[in-house]
Design a binder for these strands. Structure first.
Lengths: 359, 359
DNA sequence: GTGAAAGCGCTAACAC
DNA sequence: GTGTTAGCGCTTTCAC
């Protein structure tokens, strides 16, 4: 009358108890076989392992996490996975995490602040830490989140929290100086999304560099940081009469070039355009894009390292209560260098009066 | 001598017990307040909710999953997140999942079959189902995985498993017919990665269409499905003397165009090139790419729907043992239509002897 | 080296 | 409508 388990494929995953029963030991011995093999008699170990293999047993990481407090997962929240800026960062983070036996869960917020907040809370208990990439949240919200789960912020500076930044300010300065060197004196800055730290940094540096060079800088924006967003301002750029544009990112720069093209303006003959990011795409368009290269892969790796630096520490939550998310970890702030890559989308300032905009 | 919890920010996340203590009810009442609010007295409910809010309590989804058997997460495994083909699919899947109160965890396998297998196992217990996108695994491995966790396969046909496919075969046929119509009779097919179902479908259809049109089809490959992979065969294409190429995907097509350009061959004047996927990028290159558009967003949405169609069913594993991963769900197989988008990378066959390759 | 027992945070019968 | 109890799959003292 009892239902016996036949030697078939398991309809339901085997648990630690099934393995214990099959190998004739207590469940704690099975547990040890997987989490502390050296504590178990070699003979017992091979027997247990054989039975486990046989039953297709795999430790349930979620159950383990409930007691150890460590899931061996890390969360990575990005604004827009379709923006080619992010994938290299994601891949680098995944690679680095894998080396340390961690898995990365990626979540996309669609550039939406509310989604961002909701996601980070949903992830909080399922991961040992979260990489917040280019967050659009307010600083205070980020701080609040960081009390719930360890956080490393990428592409933003938040006091008291570990941050990995790329020096886009320096990059923007180099870009402006490059344009000044080509003779440009009327320059536009294509602003990015509201709430973006990167955007603020670029603007601050660009404004300063332009002023220092005696150039006039027009700020256009905020804009959606996509090709569409860049294309949408082409007409505005034309009317503004500038001879050069620094865009918030490559996608916008490329969209702008397309848009200008449709209006009959050539890049770089009529207008010079500089992007930021150096996404793979920027080498594939015609003209190839002059841009500020950001070390995205390095940022991903560094962020993972910073998050996992206390890997061997006491667990958070559960048994090992005490270690608050943010405290006692060195809250290092790392600034990675950027560089200007000059390609074909920038050129000498056109002779005055060359098109209808006057000079 | 006892450490009392002060009214400070929680150093450790509040549990259901903390809320119970604070609101003077039993933990099961707190539980009900969150998972079945209608079963609890409105007055009690508001009190509990207030305390919960106060303590910053959030139900631990992992602990809940342990008992309900449902995590409200779904896993999405892709070959290469940096391939622009995937992000639209990912975003669509995420959007659809969110509507049903599910979260999507994305994992990247780096086109590596072993990583793919490892990842799917690691994910299995943390999600209610897995979307296997363009898997490189063998069919038998996929079937094995599907006994561990519900699976929906995207971009591949596996007997007995729910699949969402895009009819790239039809697309390839249209592409070849388009080239035939332009007078091309010597055509190359740039093969994609080994183990790709899409690759096999394209080849099968292209070979058939070419034969039917009396054209000669040279198959080149397998190749890595990236720009680099496409650029690497440019010389081979030139030497083969073909006048048109159908590439496994847009990335390879774009890489090939770059490579041909470097060899002094113009597209489409000297060689016509067709891609597959219609990634956003294909509209941004010069020449704009003629390509087979695949409904990636629809595929993502459909796959989520298929995975979640038994949403309200008994839980898998845990208490509700019995429902095996793959059984009793309608294993529908959906084939989504594709279409040919003609842009600027294809043109009439060049006059014979136009370049050194002869005719 | 191994077993017994407690318990992680939570839900789900079942009483009352 | 609420409390009691058992237990999800696992780890971790503590004995022996």
């Amino acid at each position: 009358m009892t239902v016996t388990t036949l030697d078939e494929e398991p309809a339901v995953p085997a648990t630690i108890r099934d393995v214990a029963r099959a190998s004739g030991v207590h469940i704690s011995t099975v547990s040890r076989t997987f989490s502390a093999p050296h504590l178990v008699n070699p003979e017992t170990r091979v027997r247990v392992l054989a039975c486990a293999e046989d039953l297709g047993y795999r430790p349930n990481r979620a159950a383990r996490a409930l007691i150890t407090g460590r899931t061996h997962n890390i969360g990575l929240i990005v604004a827009d996975i379709a923006n080619p800026f992010f994938p290299p960062l994601i891949k680098a983070a995944e690679g680095q995490a894998r080396h340390r036996d961690y898995h990365v869960f990626v979540a996309d917020t669609n550039e939406d602040q509310a989604a961002e907040e909701e996601l980070v809370h949903a992830l909080a208990k399922q991961v040992d830490g979260v990489l917040l990439c280019s967050p659009r949240m307010s600083n205070s919200l980020i701080e609040q989140v960081s009390r719930e789960v360890p956080v490393v912020v990428i592409n933003r500076q938040v006091a008291g929290l570990p941050c990995v930044m790329m020096d886009v300010g320096q990059g923007a300065r180099l870009a402006i100086e490059h344009l000044l060197g080509l003779g440009h004196r009327r320059i536009a800055l294509l602003g990015g999304p509201r709430g973006s730290w990167t955007n603020r940094e670029i603007r601050r540096a660009a404004v300063a560099a332009a002023r220092a060079g005696g150039a006039e800088l027009t700020v256009l924006g905020p804009n959606h940081p996509t090709e569409t967003g860049g294309g949408a301002v082409a007409d505005q750029v034309r009317r503004s009469g500038v001879t050069a544009v620094l865009a918030y990112n490559d996608l916008m720069a490329i969209g702008l070039i397309e848009g200008l093209d449709a209006l009959g303006l050539r890049v770089p003959q009529d207008v010079s355009v500089v992007g930021v990011d150096d996404i793979a795409l920027s080498r594939l368009t015609r003209p190839k894009l002059t841009t500020v290269a950001t070390p995205t892969a390095a940022a991903g790796r560094t962020a993972v390292d910073m998050l996992l630096q206390h890997d061997s520490d006491a667990p958070r939550g559960a048994r090992g209560r005490g270690a608050s998310a943010g405290d006692h970890r060195t809250t290092a702030q790392v600034m990675l260098q950027t560089e200007l890559v000059v390609r074909d989308s920038t050129g000498p300032v056109p002779p005055p009066g060359r098109d209808g905009t006057g000079a």
